[in-house]
Amino acid sequence: MNPARALHLPAYLGFFSGQFRKMLAYRTRYVTGIVSYLVYVTTYYYLWRAVFSHRAAGAEVAGYTLDQMVTYVAISWIARSAYFNNVDREIAEQVQNGSIAVALSRPVSLQGTVVAAALGEGLFRFCFFTLPIGAVILLLFPVGAPASPLHAAAFLVSCALSQVILTHVNFLVGMCAFPLKNIDGVMRMKHYLIEILSGLLLPVALFPGWLQALSSWLPFQAIAYVPSSLWLGHLRGPAPAGGPLAWLAAEPGQLVARALLVQLLWVAFLAVLSNLVWRRAARRLVVQGG
């Protein structure tokens, strides 16, 4: 049997394409989002300018020059505009209003459906959100080019992996809605955890040593820190080079491979964990309403 058929890829492609088209119906909603991303990048741009203002030209903070720091911030936010999603909130809503029943009446796994739809959303965001945001930010701020074509290619792959990692983190948070029903608090906690520990607001290399060590064993740094570091070619330092694969290699090509491998391992781990959690949740499922 054809392996694509055996995995029901055409079915999941349906959810991918359905979500893409659904987002397309709401594309004007994203115009305002461009402004908020611009505000974030502007804020952090001036913040880092202020931090570096009393230092000599070319000085480094935790291994970053001002130019690199500005690039890191801009690229991190541009990447976020593509990989971000609200899978957790969507699952919680479906559990709360009972429409989860419809999702379960389909001959596919909920997890696969959620991931496929999130990827469809990712493609939409990339085309209609990231490209305009990226163009505006690149025009307004002195963003450095990727370290090399290899790093540029690795960055794109890495963003896609970030998306799958975040989707699974959100899926797991969404699963909390089965026992808890209301997960606003959990979602808010996750939001701040990700903002900080992913390295979106601050490169992980600036964290105190113990937090760097801790975050190299958590999936969050694989969401923002890894792709942005790939763009910069900034793969030395403890994380993401530390953690599970710290023993592996030191050449640039190998460092790139290692960064992607770290992400892949997180994808695999979170996918398996999500599956286990879902199986447990399904057994205890209570569908609300008529």
Binding site: G18, R21, K22, A25, G98, V102, S105, G290
Partner: peptide
Amino acid sequence: VVFGQRTQLWWDL
């Protein structure tokens, strides 16, 4: 399966 109070169609398509 048809749930009278929910739709299984894509709302916006």
